[in-house]
Nucleic acid binder design. Structure first.
Length: 969
RNA sequence: GGGCGGUUAGCUCAGUUGGUAGAGCAUCUCGUUUACACCGAGAAUGUCGGGAGUUCGAGCCUCUCACCGCCCA
């Protein structure tokens, strides 16, 4: 057969990838159970990307790892399912659609109404919702796309586009809500929640980001009621009086003056002696119309820190989480000041009415009603203002009235340079932690509202037990600690959202406000005969439905035999940032609903950052778009880079440089395949790798089981980087750099059995390489699988559904020793040549001295290879080292390169001396150990023997090097 | 303030039960030898953050200090 070049000179991923992907789809290669040959299943649930999402590097990383595992298991014959799908992403999607409406100058969400708006959302989903699915396909994600699921599937109005076969997620979500409600695991309550004034909805603790910003701390005087006074005494650490004065006020520090309007009390620490004389008395809030100033009590509570500010804290229960706790402990009313947009309230009673009522409550002349929401303590002139505007006015008013705490400040006149002392309000500039909505970016306002909660404390234990008892392993291990810490201190989970896009809460209210929880209006009506029912307008937190992802995508509550076998799933791979959002909640909810752990292993990974370790952001301009990377370097290069970065718990820093180097690896494989093709290395029918006879072939075949084992071990333990590195090293470092080079003399020499054997072996090893690399680089390997399948025996299947190599029994220690020797020899000669400045192109003779018969046999076996790779002309044996020769000591023999007058004797001496020095250093180290009685007595036998052997080898080498040095005179 | 990590070659990072410190990239030198310059050959590079301890032996275990991250208040 003649060498006909079929492979393109260059591999072009842009042409190949879409074609290969289509073939996979045509062959149903990703279908659940494809290539299954055993009973064990392997299931991964994709972390559902938002339906609004576009593929970013985080997805690329995350899904590459999942795909590697999936492809590996599929090839190993597991009954494999990678379940894809998307999340309806309440806030994000609603926002996106509202934006679209605005751009197209359509009526706004509120103008068109709920039903019409939801229609628009579904329309939008059908149009743009498959973006990320198509992008995942470009990455090569081998999900069973025919099962693409959606967390809103089956909800009213669902036209089913893009998730045609999705189980009815909506029914599952509603059922879970009703069940949990009936079990008392879900309840409704008026609580302080994180309120997003932009989206006008409650959000959970986890959706709040606390960011340190520049803020101010104002200090104000709250006058005591009736002009009362007390002696204010301040002491230093030793109890000496540093300040003593009569005061008719108590000093309060606050970062939020506008909330003073809703103060219900002033609190001091019970141990704080400064304020002991006035505890229990009333003081006046220094804002609002003077004639209707409110009086509030001075109380004690453990919360105030005596060393912070003045030690006295104003308590605004409806607008601060800490104050809320204090207010509840001390039965202080919670006065709401703001509306859903974060503006000062305009509803409720007039200020005068409200103030009088509040005053009566404070003076205990009246019992506070349970619901104080009608009381609006915002003075008329501040009503309707944004809270920040209101803040400015409040500060100005208090200051004008002389109730701000003042300090002296020195001011220098710019022109005259004259210094004057002025008294100014005491305002500290300080960093304060401010809560922001992670989606909206606006300042979050604690807001007192009615919301639905999951009583997480009641369902947390099984999730904790799962990890504690090792049923669920979290990687890296530090993740488990974080998991325990959070779950052990879990707070109720607020699950209602004041949005429209989402699963509407299945609760109806009658006219008296009594609630009926049921799967449908009919059922609810049956519970409330003759009553007019109104449905709760709120929807569920998106994470409530994502929490059901494992069972929901598999069709719960209907279990078919097929879906039953894929649950529980196996490995969950996700970003550590959603450990609480999603992972912990899935564990709690699957346990609460079906009493099982949803998976046995959780692999958490870091955020993918840029090469400098910075977060990628549009603002910084350091975003790497995976699709651009795929366009430029191919999906395989990106995937291999991702796998290679994936050390457990490691930081993920991505640079295009790195991707480029793995693109080079793809090219390398391509070229190796081209080389084999050019040399007629075709697969041979019935080739049995156990029957080869040449050491070179035995060696490369013997190295295969080891690399398979390394890759297996890495993937088994989710050390993707280890597997990737092992594959890379074998393919490039062993197969290309040595095997192919060493095989060249045979391949390009005389025809005969040796050439045939080498050709067959090379083709066989390439096949194994394609199999091994496939999980990491599916496209180029599949393409080469097809190309190399054009000759030799016909391929029975695409690579994606071929079997993972099982090569036990190919190991060959003798061939390994022999080839290791050969590689050392050639490397040694090359090294000497380079250091002796022998021109790279020059061919020189080699004289072997003192070789054992075995070595001599080896030399004659590999003469051609040595000649070629070490650029040697004559290869002869001699009893003595010739004059003017550079010498290489390897094993028992010395290899001399007679360089004649070319040799620089001093350079050669220096080279040998350097080597001798290194050997001596090591020998000394070992001798220190061996002469240590403690070491001999206590170290394990194995270690001692090892050291002794090493010592012997090094000593021999040392002697030979010395002798070589002596030869030089 | 609480919790969890990190500190190893110029850079990015491996180092799985304590026993000869590694890789990739970058750097330098040489080289077009018909698979590959997206290549080949060779070289240089480390008081494994500081200190103390346990041990025959510590990058790895313990304590401590310093600095840097992240999460939660």
């Amino acid at each position: 057969m003649s060498a006909s070049i079929m492979l393109e000179k260059k591999y072009n991923p842009n042409d190949v990838e879409p074609r290969i992907h289509q073939k996979w789809m045509d062959e149903n290669a990703f279908r659940a159970g494809a290539n299954a040959s055993r009973k064990e299943t392997f299931t991964i649930m994709i972390p559902p990307p938002n339906v609004t999402g576009a593929l970013h590097v985080g997805h690329a990383f995350n899904n590459t790892l999942q795909d590697v595992l999936i492809r590996w298991h599929r090839m190993r014959g597991f009954d494999t399912l990678w379940q894809p799908g998307q999340d309806h992403a309440g806030i994000a999607t609603q926002l996106q659609v509202e934006k679209m409406l605005k751009q197209n100058q359509l009526p706004s969400r509120r103008d068109m109404g709920r039903e019409k708006f939801l229609e628009k959302v579904w329309e939008w989903k059908g149009k743009y919702g498959d973006t990320i699915v198509n992008q995942l396909k470009r990455l090569g994600a081998s999900c069973d796309w025919s099962r693409n699921a959606f967390t809103m599937a089956g909800a009213p109005g669902d036209p089913g586009t893009g998730h045609e076969n999705s189980p009815n997620f909506h029914d599952a979500v509603i059922k879970v809500f009703v069940d949990m409600y009936n079990k008392g695991l879900i309840y409704r309550g008026k609580r302080l929640v994180n309120w997003d004034p932009h989206f006008e909805t409650a959000i959970s603790d986890l959706e709040v980001e606390n960011i340190e910003v520049d803020g101010h701390m104002w200090h104000f005087k709250y006058p005591l009621a009736g002009g009362e006074t007390y002696t204010y005494v301040e002491r230093d650490e030793d109890g000496n009086i540093v300040l003593e004065e009569e005061r008719d006020y108590i000093s309060i520090a606050t970062t939020r003056p506008e909330t003073m309007l809703g103060d219900g009390a002033v609190a001091v620490h019970p141990s704080d002696e400064r304020y002991a004389p006035i505890v229990g008395k009333l003081c006046e809030i220094p804002v609002g119309p003077k004639e209707h100033r409110r009086l509030i009590p001075i109380i004690t509570d453990e919360y105030p820190d005596p060393d912070f500010g003045s030690g006295a804290v104003k308590i605004t229960g409806a607008h601060d989480f800490n104050d809320y706790q204090v207010a509840r402990r001390n039965n202080i009313p919670l006065y709401v000041l703001m509306d859903t947009k974060g503006h000062m309230r305009t509803d409720g009673w007039s200020y005068v009415e409200s103030a009088q009522m509040a005053k009566a409550i404070a003076q205990k002349k009246r019992e506070a009603p349970e619901d104080v929401s009608a009381i609006n303590l915002v003075p008329e002139h501040l009503r309707g203002l944004d809270r920040l505007e209101a803040r400015k006015k409040v500060v100005a008013e208090i200051t004008a009235e002389g109730l701000a705490v003042m300090v002296e400040q020195t001011r220098t006149d710019k022109e005259t340079g004259e210094e004057t002392r002025v008294r100014v309000p005491y305002v500290e500039n300080k960093k304060i932690m401010q809560p922001f909505g992670d989606r909206s970016g606006v300042v979050i306002e604690p807001m007192l509202t009615d919301q639905w909660y999951v009583d997480t404390a009641k369902i947390v234990e099984p999730a904790l037990a799962a990890v504690r008892e090792g049923r669920v392993e979290i990687m890296p291990e530090s993740g488990e600690k974080v998991f325990f810490h959070w779950l052990n201190n879990i707070e109720p989970w607020c699950i209602s959202r004041q949005l429209w896009w989402g699963h509407q809460i299945p609760v109806w209210y009658d006219d008296e406000g009594k609630e009926y929880c049921a799967s449908s209006l009919q059922e609810a009506q049956a519970m409330a005969p003759g009553k007019t029912l109104t449905r709760d307008p709120d929807v569920l937190d998106t994470w409530f439905s994502s929490g059901l992802w494992p069972i929901g995508t598999l069709g719960w509550p209907n279990w078919t035999e097929e879906t039953r076998k894929y649950f529980p799933t196996d490995v969950l791979i996700t970003g550590q940032d959603i450990l609480f959002f999603w992972v912990a909640r899935m564990m709690m909810m699957q346990q609460a609903v079906v009493g099982e752990d949803p998976f046995h292993t959780v692999y958490l990974h870091e955020l993918v950052r840029d090469e400098k370790g910075r977060k990628m952001s549009k603002v910084t301009g350091n975003v790497i778009d995976p699709l651009e990377i795929i366009d430029e370097f191919g999906a395989d290069a990106l995937r291999f880079t991702m796998a290679q970065m994936a050390s457990v718990g490691g930081f993920l820093k991505l640079s295009t440089n790195r991707i480029k180097s793995y693109r080079n690896f793809v090219t390398k494989i391509w070229n190796a395949a081209r080389f084999l093709e050019m040399n007629d290395c075709y697969r041979v029918e019935g080739f049995d790798p156990k029957t080869v006879s040449m050491p070179l072939n035995k060696w490369i075949l013997g190295a295969l089981p080891r690399v398979v084992a390394e890759i297996d071990r890495g993937l088994e333990s989710l050390h993707f980087n280890d597997s990737a590195n092992a594959a890379y090293e074998f393919v490039w470092g062993t197969f290309c750099d040595w095997y192919i080079e060493l095989a060249k003399p045979t391949l390009q020499g005389e025809d005969g059995p040796q050439k045939d054997e080498t050709r067959a072996t090379a083709a066989y090893v390439l096949d194994q390489i394609l199999l091994l690399l496939h999980p990491f680089m599916p496209f180029v390997t599949e393409e080469l699988w097809a190309e190399t399948g054009k000759t030799g025996p016909e391929r029975t299947a695409m690579l994606v559904v071929s079997d993972w190599p099982d090569l036990a029994g190919l190991e060959s220690p003798e061939a390994e020793d022999e080839l290791n020797w050969l590689v050392d020899l050639i490397s040694g000669i090359r090294s000497v040549r380079a250091e002796m400045n022998v021109p790279a192109g020059a061919r020189i003779p080699l004289v072997v001295v003192g070789a054992s018969p075995e070595t001599q046999t080896r030399i004659s076996t590999h003469t051609d290879a040595i000649r070629r790779l070490a650029r040697i002309t004559d290869l002869e044996t001699a009893p003595d080292v010739p004059e003017k020769a550079a010498q290489l000591v390897l094993g028992e023999a010395v290899y001399a390169l007679p360089l004649g007058d070319v040799i620089d004797v001093d350079a050669e001496k220096a080279r040998l001396n350097k080597e001798i020095g290194a050997v001596e250093k090591e020998v000394a180290q070992i001798e220190r150990k061996l002469s240590n009685q403690q070491f001999l007595a206590k170290a394990p036998e194995r270690v001692v023997t090892e050291q002794k052997t090493r010592h012997a080898d090094l000593s021999e080498r040392h002697e030979k090097l010395k002798k070589a040095l002596a030869c030089l005179g």
